[in-house]
Amino acid sequence: MREALGADPRGLLARLRAGDPRAFEELVMTYQHRVFGVALRMLGSRAEAEEIAQEVFLRAHRSLGDFRGEARLGTWLYGIASRLCLNRLASPDRRVARGDAALLDVPAATPDAAAEVERAELDTALRAAIAELPDERRLVLVLRDIEGLSYEQIAVALTLDPGTVRSRLHRARMQLKEKLERFA
């Protein structure tokens, strides 16, 4: 799991609003891995994830004037990324191709040299189980258990009631538990 989403770099929002030419670059550098990460976990394709991640920052670039600063910049970017991913996943053109590719392009966790075969099977089963989750549940799971956001940050990013976040996360985890039971 990624480290918790902390505070934005000091003064970054103010410098962005002031038109500091280096501030946008700093924004991208600071959050590129997080934004790309959620896009990749949701879409399963590195090329598509990069496309979406770029679009996230371009939209942020265009919309900085509307950002009030009540949420962290990181949370705001996660929200944009999440919506773009869900939109992409729901597009009819993509729906034809999905179901088998999701998350398969994602590199596995560092292999454990001691238990290669079983570990590889487990990794495959884990990624397949995550890929089979409904999009909204998978998104919450990715944001919480892989990207390390808190319940509150997820609720803000997705403009969801915290109870809905809890419910989706719990159902996603329970579903994964069922899928992985044979490896117990």
Partner: peptide
């Protein structure tokens, strides 16, 4: 155990040159 497995998945990094392209 399931939660532990999910959390053990490595975070990914954006590809090289991503910042420049953005």
């Amino acid at each position: 155990r399931a939660v532990k497995l999910i959390r053990a998945i490595d975070p990914v990094r954006a590809p090289a040159g991503f910042v420049e392209r953005v």
